[in-house]
Amino acid sequence: MSWDVLIMKTKYDFEAPEEEQPPVPPLGQRDVIIEKLTRRLPNLDYRDKAWGVLEGEGFSIEFNTGDEELVDSIMLHVRGGGAVMDTLCLICETLEAYALDTSDTGYIDFEQPEAAEQSWEQFQKYRDKVINNHNGRV
């Protein structure tokens, strides 16, 4: 089970009607994105250009970049525990992008660390509850 975070260039207004949404610009060319990310995150493995893997201290993040040369967004699949927020913040700074917590359709505000950390903690509590309930069944 992963905590899924969508990295995108602009914020989507979930309250506005679809016809009022501005066009969403792409993040950029896949090779350029991979080069930027691997320069800032040296242990990021991008041997498969569509799917990168980062092993952190107590966590892992899979980067679903996709098969297209022009990347609209990247879905991050975060697993484990530990201090993930600094890494997510670094990813967003590197790509000049925003991180959408797909579990509550809220953007992660890295300028308010307690609020940002709360999203990750809520997911971990939910995940642990699901796993513990599942393990109790035969």
Rank of each mutant, 00 (worst) to 15 (best):
W3G: 08
D4P: 06
L6T: 14
L6R: 14
M8A: 14
K9M: 04
T10A: 07
T10F: 00
T10H: 06
D13W: 01
A16S: 07
A16V: 03
P17G: 02
E18I: 10
E19T: 04
E19R: 11
E20L: 12
P22T: 08
P22N: 09
P22Y: 03
P23I: 12
P23M: 10
V24C: 08
P26E: 09
L27H: 10
L27A: 13
G28P: 02
R30A: 07
R30D: 05
I33C: 05
I33G: 03
I34M: 01
K36R: 07
L37E: 05
T38G: 05
R39K: 15
L41Q: 06
L41N: 09
P42G: 03
D45Q: 05
R47E: 03
D48I: 13
D48F: 07
W51G: 06
W51C: 08
W51E: 08
L54G: 02
L54F: 08
E55V: 10
G56Y: 00
E57D: 13
E57G: 11
E57N: 14
S60C: 01
I61T: 00
E62P: 01
F63Y: 10
N64M: 11
N64F: 07
G66I: 02
G66Y: 02
G66T: 00
D67Q: 15
D67K: 15
E68S: 11
L70I: 15
L70M: 13
D72R: 14
D72N: 13
D72K: 13
D72Q: 14
M75Q: 11
L76F: 02
H77S: 15
V78Y: 00
R79M: 09
G81K: 14
G81I: 08
G81R: 14
A83Q: 10
V84R: 00
V84P: 00
M85D: 03
T87C: 02
C89G: 09
C89I: 04
C89E: 11
L90C: 07
I91L: 01
C92V: 00
E93Q: 15
T94N: 04
T94A: 06
L95D: 04
E96V: 11
A97N: 04
Y98C: 08
Y98V: 01
L100Q: 04
L100F: 09
D101V: 02
T102S: 07
T102N: 06
T102G: 03
T102I: 07
S103E: 11
S103Y: 06
D104Y: 01
G106C: 11
G106V: 07
Y107H: 10
Y107S: 08
Y107N: 07
Y107F: 13
I108Q: 07
I108G: 05
D109Q: 13
E111H: 11
Q112C: 14
Q112W: 09
P113R: 04
P113G: 01
A115Y: 05
A116Q: 02
A116E: 02
E117R: 12
E117K: 12
E117L: 09
Q118S: 12
S119H: 12
S119L: 06
W120F: 10
W120S: 11
Q122E: 14
Q124S: 11
K125A: 09
K125S: 10
K125T: 13
Y126G: 15
Y126H: 15
D128I: 01
K129P: 00
I131Y: 05
I131H: 02
N133T: 11
H134F: 15
H134P: 05
G136M: 14
G136D: 15
G136Y: 10
